[in-house]
Amino acid sequence: MSGSLLAQSAVNALVLSSLYILMALGFALLLSIMGVVNFAHAVIYMVGGYVCYELIVTAGLNNWVALAITALGLGLFGLFLERFGFRPFFGNTNRIIVLTLAVIVILESLVNVLVGSEVRAIPSFWSGSFQIKGVWIAHERIIAFVAAAVLLIAVFTFIRRSRTGQQMLATSQDFVGATLQGINIYRITAIAAFIACALAAVAGGLMGSLMFLNPFAGDQMLVRAIQVVILAGIGSIGGVLVGGLILGVLNAFLPLWLEGSAVDAVGVAVIIVIMLFRPQGLFGHEA
């Protein structure tokens, strides 16, 4: 095993981890605050990639502006989804599941109809690559990592420091208690939905510059997001960081030794074993 391959994988691990965390954080927010298993989360990610592509290539916008508009636009879609989807069916798991599946079916086929199976990729944010000690690293990977990391720091600071963020945490710990304390629940759930969808959209835009876009690309990402959330433990926002890092490392290094589907099998087996001994996840509270 050459050192440069390992170094490449380390960079990959960082990039993957940060994107997984972006995805999983939104999923975890909705899950812990509203109890919503948002299966449509990764479809937002996929749509984010395409919207970003259209804004850059068709509308000719700057990459960063396009990414910001994408995040805002899909964040607004998140607000819409929360107001007319999750809120009316609050507490009714079955109906929310069907609703999110309907969103998946509709958005996936819409993209499929509008774009078709043509191969598309978002133009690089910063093309080229550089060399450290004989290891070539593509600029765009660094960009993806840095962008994701900055965004994550911003969101975590918001959750930890701001009043609204504290209220979000309180709601995720104890919904009824939060209501009794006079927290405006619907303001909290709306903000959570906005953040969740905006983060997924950014992850889609960043990932779209590293890989080809595909209308069904979300499916695998959804599994990854859920993997991270389960590793972290439902209700633990901070644990998402560790869970994402573990999964990123597994998915970056295992391909050095194993073929694709075996990598997935190992990743999933790790989760199953963890759930066997700690059903509440690594950082969850005992149920």
Binding site: V98, A102, V103, V105, I106, S109, L110
Partner: peptide, 17 residues
């Protein structure tokens, strides 16, 4: 309807929900 066929499915699901 080709690739748009699943859209009908999605609409039916929304109606049911």
């Amino acid at each position: 309807l080709g690739t748009a066929a699943p859209l009908v499915l999605g609409v039916v699901m929304l109606i049911v929900v």
